[in-house]
Computed example of a mutant assay.
Amino acid sequence: MTVEFIVILLLGAAAGGFMNGLAGFGTALFAMGFWLQIMPPTQAVSVVVVVSALTGLQGVWLVRGSITDHPRRLARFLLPALLGIPLGVAALSYLRADTLKLIIAGFLILYGGFFTLRAALPKMERPTPVIDVLIGFAGGILGGATSLSGVLPTMWCAMRPWPKSETRAVLQPFNVAVLAVITGALAVKGNYTAQTLTYLATVLPVTVIFAQLGIVVFKRLSDDQFRRLLIALMLLSGLILMAREVVW
């Protein structure tokens, strides 16, 4: 590994870990923008799903009380997602690196725009079990294909009138469980070569440390500050990644 390679590798680990600790998701959204510059898509996804799942365990512990208070809510998202994962994993082999980058950039921009408009959106207070199931299923497909399992559930949960701890109590265990299954599927396919495991050993300590920093910030943010920070980080990152692929 060259110095430039290591720097990009660790920048992705730091960005992804911090967002995981801060928001309970986002490791893939931020880390993949870096790692797809130095790894093929299959290898980048193989690395990101492992670090996402392992660092996410810290966040699960953080909101464990909210998880046990609403177990059925989580199940409506998680169980359908498990059915969608094989479809996503099957699609992974057919994706090109530039296509995957554009998909990630598009989700970042859409998500940033979504939160920009969130104040004007209605709060969905009534139960929506069917939509929850569909969102979970789609999240499983995206998770298997690009490790972006949390994007759609996050957009949907953000419309619910839940405190940030309850929102995280859905998103964090959802992502951890989905990505753990994806990791197993990728391992069966033989994706975890010696080189991939070396990359994992390099990035994991950095990701864990920055996830802890993200958790510290999460605890200190108000709901409004939390939303504004997400807007700035996601929208800016998506625009930069899109410009890199389309313009440069």
Results as ranks from 00 to 15, higher is better:
Glu4Thr: 14
Phe5Trp: 14
Ile6Pro: 00
Leu9Phe: 02
Ala13Leu: 08
Ala13Asn: 04
Ala14Thr: 11
Gly16Pro: 01
Gly17Lys: 04
Phe18Met: 08
Phe18Cys: 08
Asn20Glu: 15
Ala23Asn: 05
Ala23Glu: 05
Gly24Asn: 01
Gly24Glu: 05
Gly26Glu: 06
Ala28Asn: 07
Phe30Ser: 10
Met32Gly: 00
Gly33Tyr: 09
Pro40Arg: 11
Pro40Asp: 15
Pro41Thr: 02
Ala44Trp: 05
Val45Pro: 00
Ser46Lys: 07
Val50Pro: 03
Val51Cys: 06
Ala53Cys: 10
Leu54Tyr: 03
Thr55Cys: 07
Thr55Ile: 05
Gly56Ile: 04
Gly59Tyr: 04
Val60Arg: 02
Val60Leu: 10
Ile67Cys: 02
Thr68Phe: 13
Asp69Arg: 15
His70Glu: 15
His70Cys: 00
Leu74Pro: 03
Leu74Met: 08
Leu74Cys: 06
Arg76Gln: 12
Ile85Val: 15
Pro86Gly: 08
Pro86Arg: 10
Gly88Tyr: 10
Ala91Gly: 07
Leu92Pro: 01
Arg96Ser: 15
Leu102Met: 14
Ile103Thr: 08
Ile104Asp: 00
Ala105Leu: 09
Ala105Asn: 09
Gly106Ser: 13
Phe107Ser: 06
Ile109Lys: 03
Leu110Asn: 09
Gly112Thr: 10
Gly112Glu: 10
Phe114Glu: 04
Phe115Met: 14
Thr116Asn: 02
Arg118Phe: 05
Arg118Ser: 11
Ala120Val: 06
Pro122Gln: 09
Lys123Arg: 15
Met124Gln: 10
Pro127Gly: 05
Thr128Tyr: 13
Pro129Gln: 12
Val130Leu: 15
Ile135Ser: 01
Ile135Lys: 02
Gly136Met: 01
Gly144Arg: 04
Pro153Leu: 10
Cys157Glu: 12
Ala158Ser: 15
Arg160Met: 12
Ser165Lys: 13
Ser165Ala: 15
Thr167Gln: 14
Thr167Gly: 00
Arg168Tyr: 06
Arg168Phe: 05
Ala169Gly: 08
Val170Ser: 01
Leu171Met: 12
Pro173Arg: 04
Ala177Cys: 14
Ala177His: 02
Val178Ser: 03
Ala180Arg: 11
Ile182Glu: 12
Thr183Ile: 08
Ala185Ile: 13
Lys189Trp: 04
Ala194His: 12
Gln195Leu: 13
Leu197Cys: 07
Thr202Asn: 04
Leu204Trp: 10
Val208Trp: 11
Ile209Cys: 11
Ile215His: 11
Val217Met: 14
Lys219His: 14
Ser222Trp: 04
Asp223Gln: 14
Asp223Cys: 00
Asp224Val: 14
Phe226Ile: 04
Ile231Glu: 10
Ile231Ser: 00
Ala232Glu: 00
Leu233His: 01
Leu236Trp: 10
Leu236Thr: 15
Ile240Glu: 13
Leu241Glu: 08
Met242Pro: 00
